[in-house]
């Protein structure tokens, strides 16, 4: 007699799924155990939170925040923005160049070029996987305290982020229009810039805007390790328990990040709208 085949959905899936759920729960329990998460501790320390809030408000007390201080914070905020902008710009340019070589079959197509592509991809991964604070510590050690170290950090971080996504965007472009150009004798270099890059442009722009948002957020904390910007001011105020002035800085950071995010999303929508027409 001929045995009917088991339909795929009645195969081993239910057991495998059940085991996966069990495994997930076990891993979660293990991680919460190790993370020291404790509701009791959180509730028990409300007193400290209240103290912080009590001392932080009102944030601007004319006896405690002088105009000179505020002016200094303002300059630090401007510096934060400048670091983020300059670092992102450098990172975009270098990231784009690296992405051209990291993108599969874009600039060259031969077994030897696969090695090049792989090496560039690894370099980009290295930039991306090492956290920005670690880069900041390294650059502070190399070029000293201040905004330059922060700018370099943002640059490296942006290369890691944009190198990867730029390469993926150019890989996703339909290559047939590039092929049409190369069939009529155009150099590969020309087909990349005349056909592939224009087609990838909307994606490149939105990725760049995300990169800038990310840079603004990370430039705020770089000051904590001495790499310039407003983070340094925030850290020293927290150390001195000057919570009211710290609150002023937190407010300023909030406004900066919010404005940049809003602008960036406005420009992204503009690009999208332009594409839909």
């Amino acid at each position: 007699m001929h045995r009917a085949a088991v339909p795929p959905r009645f195969g081993n899936r239910p057991i495998a799924g059940f085991l996966a759920v069990i495994l997930f729960l076990l891993v979660s329990a293990w991680c919460f155990g190790g993370s020291g998460f404790s509701i009791a501790q959180l509730l028990g320390s409300s007193e400290y939170l209240l103290r912080f809030l009590r001392e932080a408000f009102p944030p601007i007390d004319e006896h405690r925040l002088t105009f000179e201080q505020f002016h200094r914070y303002w300059l630090a905020l401007i510096e934060t923005f400048q670091m983020a902008f300059a670092g992102t710009l450098l990172g975009l340019v270098i990231g784009f160049i690296l992405a051209l070589f990291a993108s599969r079959g874009l600039m060259f197509e031969s077994p030897r070029s696969n090695l090049l592509q792989w090496s560039v991809k690894m370099l980009i991964s290295l930039f991306r996987t090492v956290p920005d604070l670690v880069w900041a510590i390294i650059f502070v050690m190399v070029v000293g305290l201040g905004a330059f170290a922060g700018t370099l950090t943002i640059m490296v971080d942006t290369i890691g982020f944009c190198g990867r996504f730029f390469a993926e965007e150019m890989e996703d472009v339909d290559r047939s229009s590039a092929e049409a150009l190369s069939a009529s004798g155009a150099r590969r270099f020309d087909t990349v810039f005349a056909a592939v890059v224009p087609a990838a442009t909307p994606g490149l722009i939105t990725t760049s805007l995300f990169a800038f948002e990310k840079a603004i957020r990370s430039s705020v904390v770089l000051g904590l390790v001495g790499a310039g910007g407003i983070g340094l001011e925030l850290q020293s105020l927290m150390n001195w328990m000057a919570y009211d002035r710290a609150m002023v800085i937190i407010g300023m950071i909030f406004v900066l990040v919010l404005v940049v995010e809003q602008l960036s999303s406005y420009f992204r929508k503009l690009v999208m709208k332009n594409e839909q027409q």
């Binding site: 339909d174 047939s176 229009s177 049409a180 005349a194 056909a195 224009p198 087609a199 442009t201 909307p202």
Partner: peptide, 9 residues
């Protein structure tokens, strides 16, 4: 070619 000759943007 039949299609996709041009750079769309």
């Amino acid at each position: 070619f039949q299609r996709h000759n041009l750079v769309p943007r």
